[in-house]
Nucleic acid binder design. Structure first.
Lengths: 128, 128
DNA sequence: TTTTCTACTAACAATTTTGTCAGGTATTGT
DNA sequence: ACAATACCTGACAAAATTGTTAGTAGAAAA
């Protein structure tokens, strides 16, 4: 475990992680529903009422708001579906949104991997 | 873009993503400071006052609270440092915490990759 | 005409998260 | 004794997020 700057540490310190706003990326996905919305859209549940079906505990208002926020972060965009009965709109992920999916997936795997029993394990060099 | 279950879709639908609590993993890291705290501890800034130096805008109280929350999620643990001047404590990442670091890193890369200009790009099959 | 459907929005209330203030312990140095 | 360092905690205020209620529009079906 390294401390402060040593020359071997340089690449690490200079990493995007160091300079970027760690939190802006986190805040873009940290709504109560955003992860699930992005996921379901990626699965083809790309219309308002389909998302409502998939997320039965979210109200219309809240869903609309979350979609708007995702749109403002350029994670998805709205698109009118031509020739639809009462003017349908579908939501499609931008490339940014598509790239987010595997990251959310790995976050979720991480959560699940350590879900059971809350057993705490440490790296070998931290053992005692 | 697929809809509902088709046999080719099975693996996808069965993915951990589908079954796990997408949000529990997200909520563990979505504090205003948690990402940064985990990162700095991984970089060796493993003591209370070192974290304070690295995060000058966080108050003592809030830092202590965030650390406690991370501890309650088994992302880190406290450990007394023997023979220290006024009883030092250091924070070490559990394996769970260590595994989180590259995920936060990729989240951050993702954020940075799309940071400039907010240009929206779409996948080829969504073009128009 | 009234209802239904889809896709919203504004206004406000409830809840959750953050931040601030004022302590508190334990040890060492002066 | 008094100050300083390191690490907290409880109580409460401020701010942000989420949820609720009531409404909108435009078109088609009853």
């Amino acid at each position: 475990m390294m401390r402060k700057k040593e020359s071997t540490d340089y690449a690490n310190e200079q990493s995007l992680f160091q300079l970027c706003e760690r939190n802006s990326a986190i805040s873009m996905i940290s709504g109560r529903w955003k992860g699930q919305i992005v996921y379901y859209i990626s699965q083809g549940y790309d219309r308002f009422h389909l998302l409502q079906q998939k997320l039965p505990n979210i109200s219309e208002t809240v869903l609309a708001r979350q979609l708007k926020e995702l749109e403002s972060h350029a994670i998805l965009i709205k698109r009118e579906i031509p020739n639809t009965v009462p003017t349908g709109i579908k939501y499609i992920l931008t490339n940014k949104g598509i790239d987010l999916v595997p990251i959310l997936d790995s976050l979720c795997n991480w959560g699940k991997m350590y879900a059971d029993g809350k057993k705490i394990t440490l790296a070998a060099d931290q053992q005692f």
